[in-house]
Design a binder for these strands. Structure first.
Lengths: 218, 218
DNA sequence: ACAAATATTTAGTTTTGTCTAAATATTAAT
DNA sequence: ATTAATATTTAGACAAAACTAAATATTTGT
């Protein structure tokens, strides 16, 4: 597999939302920042190699083999992201570009060793699940903090209200994007929550909880 | 810089023994496992980009800019080798192929962080020095163990006598290629040595010392 | 110094991945 | 159902990096 082929496989995988939907060549072209005609060419080649199903004018989807390949690339990408954040102190938003390069390194031993070195992480710094060597993984969903069941934890991935007062509140309570948050308990009376943010336990109102998005794996 | 260009720069650097000698296109072709005509093409391109000095029929050498580039690649290669051995438990002889890929990853922050993560190592697992960010580094020399001054240490990189009895001896005393060896003391009387091999102190005869190569940086 | 051997370059192709412009198929609108 | 708009493919070209075969320089042996 060439670098370019891998990028196409990954693009088709992501556009299909991991559910192997058929996607249009135009969509792939936009995702890859290239021209539709280039996509047609590449998709024909990938089809000959047995990585995708391609019907002219109808779109492409991954074959089983293509899916396995995509998951292997996603696995590498996410493991490297964990490495960059955990070991090299990269921040949440700096990892993507470098991981895009590292994901193409070819060495099974490297990835297995990296996985072990990192303690077999289940999710990457964005809260997305890391496929196992065999390609198994749990799906991740984005939920408002108030909808997260007690005992579950996830990664803070966004805000609904992005007004300065709210962001200031988050800053004051040391809640940042990328932080791991666990719902410890919920008050029946007012819907307020006891949560754990990176080792610290704090208590927040229901209103706050309805404005924070977590990514959780079920 | 493309991947291929980087490989050529590195080949020219290594053939010049780090001393920026002028090397022939044929030599580069052999090193790169490619054809001389391909080298001519690439060398012309590199010359236009200001990375090499090229005189047709006379050979190529790196410009100052080319040397800086080469050292930056060597630095990356060797840091990754340290990472693979120290953190991922790769053995001495497994690292090269993977490091050849990793050395092409482009991110200054990545390399600086890796360097820090590894504790700013001075040499790679083969005993070769790691250039600093600015491209400074000490030269490494290969010496027989009996010629190494007291107090110095180096990496075991080879044997002069490769007969089974000698190799068996090394195995028995847990001396392996890639091990760090420090000369602790020398007996005037018989030239025997007290050496430290990976935390263990042992005593070896002069004959043994004349058959082991160390790579040391001055 | 000259012929033979060797080294190097040039010219012309190939492959991969891309592009533009033109042609064709599909979808949407009336 | 026909036309207009949009999506997709085809055809032809290009750049990068490689190759082969032929041409040209350089070096070597006598």
């Amino acid at each position: 597999m060439t670098l370019s082929e891998e990028d196409y496989i990954k693009a088709i995988y992501h556009l299909g939302k991991g559910e192997n939907k058929t996607v249009s060549t135009n969509a792939v072209a936009e995702q890859m920042e290239t021209k539709p005609s280039s996509v047609t060419d590449m998709v024909k080649k990938l089809s000959e190699k047995g990585l995708v199903n391609y019907i002219p004018y109808k779109g492409v989807s991954l074959t089983e083999y293509g899916q396995k390949t995509a998951l292997s690339i996603v696995r590498k990408h996410r493991l490297w992201e964990v490495f960059l954040v955990e070991k090299l102190d990269f921040s949440w938003d700096e990892v993507h570009e470098v991981a895009e390069q590292l994901e193409h390194i070819k060495s099974e031993k490297l990835i297995d060793s990296l996985d072990r070195h990192l303690g077999f992480p289940q999710v990457d710094p964005h809260g997305d699940p890391i496929p196992s060597k065999k390609g198994e993984f749990k799906k991740a969903v984005k939920k408002l903090l108030n909808e997260v069941p007690i005992g579950s934890s996830g990664i803070c991935v966004g805000v609904k209200d992005s007004s300065p007062p709210f962001l200031k509140f988050l800053d004051k309570h040391k809640i940042a994007l990328g932080d791991k948050i666990t719902v410890m308990d919920k008050e029946e009376f007012d819907g307020s929550l006891h949560i754990r943010v990176k080792e610290a336990d704090i208590h927040i109102s229901n209103l706050i909880a309805t404005n924070l998005y977590l990514k959780i794996t079920e």
